[in-house]
Design a protein around this nucleic acid. Structure first.
Length: 480
RNA sequence: GGGGCUGUGGGGUAGCCUGGUAGCCUUCGAGGUCUGGGACCUCGCGACCCCGGUUCAAAUCCGGGCAGCCCCA
């Protein structure tokens, strides 16, 4: 009989908030016991998943012409304050360090004000363009609201890309490419579907011309912002006087963009979209262990069984294979443990398998076991791809039917209270629309997330709040 | 932004109202018997979030801080 212990999850996923708190702890992803608001320790299992995310993300970025850099973790006050709307937006969230040589330093909340002065030094001519750089690292934001591990934190583990171009057209093309990267990596590889939303002007990145965020609908009906991309235009290049010479010998300001996928946050979506009542389910492409081999032995046959386990491991050289040969845990204990940690495949081998020259394969997402002959050894790469595809399709299925057309604020409230996203006709996403936005946000508790960034939707009719001509089709949802 | 609740070994909790002995489950360590879906026995280690106040005496009452959870806008 199953006893209640601190090892397994004690709540179902439908109780999402508690489920999330338990899973990040019990699957050994993070530890929050340093008791520092907004900060946490990422444990080996979590760190290895994040490492895998970085690898996949950086490979994709490099293939598209981005080069790695490492920038300082601190920014001089003078730099940070060069661009007026930037500092206005970020000042309340800056961790300030003490003055050193009469200059105050900030822990970087984002790195535009480090990259742009370097662009000024590195870029002289159109021949130096485009310049596409990135760094992996942390940024720090003093969030004063309630924080939650990985979801809303004061230190964010991410990649930030900072790109410079000769023309606005090229910069805008980059913004679209950033969305493609999110699609290719986060959606296709990690299995997380999203909506690319062009944010209302009042919700854009401080210092950007416009911002496109990717919204992921979580199982509890709230949206979480995943990678966002920003057209900075010439705001930063003007503030830092970063110019280049065109083919005609004219001097012009650079056009810049920024893109920021946060690994620590994407992990939230991976946990939440794929996990189940038993624990995590990690995509094959992200799991630190591809296959866990659980040998089932007695003191008498231990040696034989372990030898057989090694034999099977050697057939799977190209993958991360681990043999769990700890003899102080029973097989059942190990099954629960590795299911909680989300390993996609498990191979069980004991006396039966050894005699018959077979193995028992357990598949985490379907929960099915099958007996496979060594002669017909499975193509693990293919099984892994199918595994990831099932996770992605399942996640997509959760999104289906979650967007509903609404004609009144009451309908919006009903939709968002039922974990859905409201789609409505809207007057304006510029200053003119702020009043309507405030009204809706007050009566529904949800936010105007923006318009679809990669699809041009034409509204027919009027703004559902003020009744003026609708110019946009916007999406509204609750958010973290 | 506003309100409420909570903090006890590594984890989960009892005790708090009514001040005086920190109890239980689990984990962990040693030894032994075990090993096909969270095995069992014996022995052992380990805690009152921090600072101040009241008191002969504080986990308990009071004030502040820090941290966490929930609800509303």
């Amino acid at each position: 009989m199953k006893k209640e212990s601190n090892e397994g999850l004690t709540v179902k996923k439908e109780n999402f908030s508690e489920w999330y708190s338990q899973i990040i702890d019990k699957a050994e992803l993070v530890d929050i016991r340093l008791d520092m608001k907004g900060f946490m320790v990422i444990r080996p299992w979590g760190a290895r998943i994040i490492e895998n995310m970085y690898k996949i993300y950086e490979k994709e970025l490099q293939e598209r012409g981005h080069e790695p850099t490492f920038m300082p973790s601190v920014i001089p006050e003078a730099n940070l304050k060069k661009e007026s709307s930037h500092i206005k937006g970020f000042t309340p969230e800056v961790f300030w360090l003490k003055e050193i040589n009469k200059e105050k330093l900030a822990l970087r909340p984002t790195s535009e004000t480090l990259y742009t002065p370097m662009f000024k030094l590195w870029i002289r001519s159109h021949r130096d363009l485009p310049l596409k750089l990135y760094q992996r690292g942390s940024v720090f934001r003093l969030d004063t609201k309630a924080t939650r591990p990985l979801i809303r934190t004061r230190e964010i583990l991410w990649i930030e890309c900072h790109d410079a171009f000769a023309t606005k057209k090229e910069a805008e093309k980059q913004v679209q490419e950033d969305i493609e990267i999110t699609e290719k990596v986060m959606h296709q590889k990690f299995g997380i579907p999203f909506l690319a939303m062009k944010r209302p002007s009042w919700d854009k990145f401080a210092g950007a011309e416009y911002t496109i965020g990717s919204d992921v609908l979580m199982p509890d009906g709230k949206l979480i912002q995943q990678p966002s991309t920003h057209l900075m235009g010439q705001k930063f290049s003007k503030a830092f006087d970063a110019k280049f010479k065109t083919e005609n010998g004219k001097e012009e300001y650079l056009w810049t963009t920024a893109y920021g996928p946060a690994m620590s946050r994407i992990l939230v979506s991976v946990i939440s979209m794929h996990g189940d009542d038993k624990g995590l389910i990690l995509p094959f492409s992200l799991s630190p262990v591809s296959v866990i081999i659980v040998p089932i032995f007695t003191t008498a046959n231990k040696e034989k069984i372990l030898k057989y386990a090694e034999e099977i491991k050697n057939k799977l050289k190209d993958f991360e294979i681990k043999i769990d040969d700890r003899d102080f845990y029973t097989p059942g204990w190990k099954f629960h443990e590795w299911e909680l940690k989300g390993v996609p495949f498990r191979i069980e081998i004991g006396e039966k398998e050894l005699k018959a020259k077979t193995l028992t394969l357990f598949i985490r997402d379907t929960g099915k076991k099958e007996i496979i002959s060594l002669k017909k050894f499975p193509d693990l790469k293919k099984l892994g791809e199918q595994f990831d595809e099932r996770l992605r399709k399942n996640a997509e299925k959760m999104m289906e039917g979650r967007i509903v057309n609404c004609k009144t604020a009451v309908e919006i409230k009903k939709a968002v209270d039922n974990s859905k996203i409201a789609k409505v006709n809207w007057c304006s996403l510029e200053e003119a629309g702020i009043k309507c936005a405030e009204s809706v946000e007050k009566s529904t508790g949800a936010e105007i997330r923006g318009t679809l960034a990669n699809k041009n939707e034409k509204p027919l009719g009027k703004c559902i709040i003020c009744g003026k001509k609708a110019n946009e089709v916007v999406y509204i949802g609750k958010s973290y």
